[in-house]
Design a binder for these strands. Structure first.
Length: 488
RNA sequence: GGCCCUAUCGUCUAGCGGUUAGGACACCUGGUUUUCAUCCAGGCAACCGGAGUUCGAUUCUCCGUGGGGCUACCA
């Protein structure tokens, strides 16, 4: 039994994003791979930007992908609550801040934004790197009392202890050293008395017993600050693994301006959760045996952080679409039916309903090779939903020749007489037409396809005819023959 | 600007001193198929540059260059 504990800690300041989802995915897979407990923690300390609806969107997205959490705001757990605003109300951060204050690792800072801007500007004009001067550290306790009595807004800042470079031991990247003189005292508690990100993260990871932190590369430079805090607070420092970024086509960090980045959008476009899952794990990780199409279990059993790559990966929708098509083709008829159902237009849905449930399912299964995304289903299902008038128009638009006429009358004669309406007997009828007319297959199939479905391409012909149904086909053949007779 | 990460086909990647630098997507060609698609076969295509280390560097080191991230009382 492993004691490992991982966490996924999104902030509800926007809808679930592909990049965030990928972090969740890697945490989930790694947790499964090592038998760790996975915690969902909502980092909503940014009161201005956090919204409940975003939290809902995130949770639903995780749920869609099947990224189950072991502990979290909805599943509960011993070490909750799992929202930082709630934890703040319980005074967790205050208690930790007080402790640091007492230990002399933190101090009250009354600098205003203008003060800080001035320091920054001065540093810039001197061409030296900006770090907060730490001037408020010099304040005596009576100074502090005085200012607090005067209601001057303040923050609590962490006093960076002196010492050698801070070493981040990254599982993926190796050791990274940071010069602590460049870090500068930073805010622990904001003037509204809510914790800053770096503080809340450490308090929570410490309290929740997090042993492994797997997150995006954009957090590397936060890590030394957090390590110092873990140490000051007396918590065990977790292991760190920083995942490479997911990039847009222009290679910059994937963001809204790259178009569809919301997980909900991919769902709406008809991507399968399993396909997205599979595609995403391949962005920054590869299996040792080179296998790409893998089930979740296959991924979990092959997964190691050592095989995570270090450089950013461009999100390539084309390959995602291909992979989605692969997953679609592996579905059983019933699975495909269930997945396609929500994407059917009312018109197509109605037309298919008229076929009965058996042929409904077959109709959908018949177009599986054409689908990359589920939203494409309606256009391919159009053959089954053609209106009588547009059918006639299609037939008329096709210039039937003399041999076509022969083929159609022959086919009509055979199809009328079919007593057991099966794909096999339809195929037999078509072969009979081929031998009877002495024409090549191409000369036979094409006119039959047009005359039965009104379209030059579509599903396998006999299957298509079977799904259309004998009465419809017979009726259409009569219509087509009638049309051809008129022409002459 | 400072700090940090990073660098193999267009894209995702394998490689962990000696390989004809492999695979996947995309693309091109051919085959199968009644058509589109699927499927199968083949093809095109890459080690950022310069110094080192070494008998030998895609691989190790350093310096450039490119790309990215962070530099907030955002997370």
């Amino acid at each position: 039994m492993s004691e490992s504990r991982l966490r996924f800690a999104p902030s509800p300041t926007g809808n679930l994003h592909i990049g965030t989802l990928r972090t969740a995915l890697f945490n989930w897979i790694y947790a499964k791979a090592i038998g760790a407990t996975l915690v969902l923690r909502i980092e909503d300390t940014d009161l201005a930007r956090s919204q409940a609806e975003f939290e809902t969107n995130i949770v639903q997205g995780l749920d869609w992908l099947g990224l189950t959490m072991d502990e979290g705001p909805f599943q509960g757990g011993e070490l909750g609550p799992y929202r930082q605003t709630e934890r703040n109300q319980l005074g967790f951060y205050k208690a930790h801040a007080d402790r640091l204050l007492q230990l002399g690792h933190a101090y009250h800072c009354f600098c205003t934004e203008a003060d800080l801007d001035q320091e920054r500007a001065a540093a810039e004009s001197d061409k030296r790197p900006y770090v907060y001067s730490g001037r408020c550290k010099a304040l005596t306790s009576s100074d502090v009392q005085e200012k607090m009595a005067a209601q001057i807004p303040f923050t609590v800042k962490f006093s960076i202890p002196t010492g050698p470079a801070v070493r981040v031991k990254d599982v993926i990247r190796g050791d990274i050293d940071f010069d602590r003189s460049l870090i500068g005292d930073f805010v622990l508690v904001k003037s509204d008395q809510t914790p800053s990100y770096n503080f809340a993260v450490v308090v929570d990871d410490g309290m929740m017993g997090i042993t492994d932190v797997v997150r995006g590369e954009d957090h590397i430079s936060n890590t030394p600050k957090q390590i110092l805090l873990f140490e000051a607070l007396g918590y065990m420092v977790p292991k760190f693994a920083h995942l490479p970024m997911i990039l847009g086509p222009d290679k910059s960090k994937l963001s809204k301006r790259h178009g569809a980045t919301g997980v909900t959008e991919y769902q709406a476009q008809g991507f399968l959760a399993d396909a997205l899952f599979n595609y995403l794990v391949l962005l920054g990780w590869s299996s040792a045996d080179g296998k790409e199409l893998m089930t979740r279990d296959e991924i979990i059993s092959r997964f190691t952080l050592e095989r995570v790559s270090k450089s950013g990966a461009v999100f390539d929708v084309t390959k995602l679409r291909w992979m989605n098509g692969q997953y679609i083709r592996r579905q059983t008829p019933d699975e495909l039916l269930n997945h396609v159902m929500p994407y059917l237009s009312d018109r197509v849905r109605l037309a298919l309903d008229a076929l009965g449930s058996d042929r409904f399912r077959s109709a959908i299964y018949s177009i599986r090779d054409n689908l990359d995304v589920l939203t494409d289903c309606n256009s391919f299902l159009e053959v089954y939903a053609m209106e009588p008038t547009s059918f006639i128009a299609q037939v008329q638009a096709y210039g039937f020749g003399e041999t076509d006429r022969t083929v159609i009358s022959s086919f009509r004669a055979h199809i009328v007489g079919v007593t057991d309406w099966t794909v096999a007997s339809i195929e037999a009828a078509i072969s009979t037409v081929v031998t009877e007319t002495g024409l090549g297959k191409g000369k036979v199939f094409k006119p039959i396809r047009i005359a039965t479905s009104g379209q030059p391409s579509g599903p396998h012909l006999a299957e298509l005819i079977w799904i259309l149904g004998q009465s419809v086909v017979v009726q259409r053949m009569a219509e087509v023959v009638g049309l051809l007779d008129q022409k002459i």
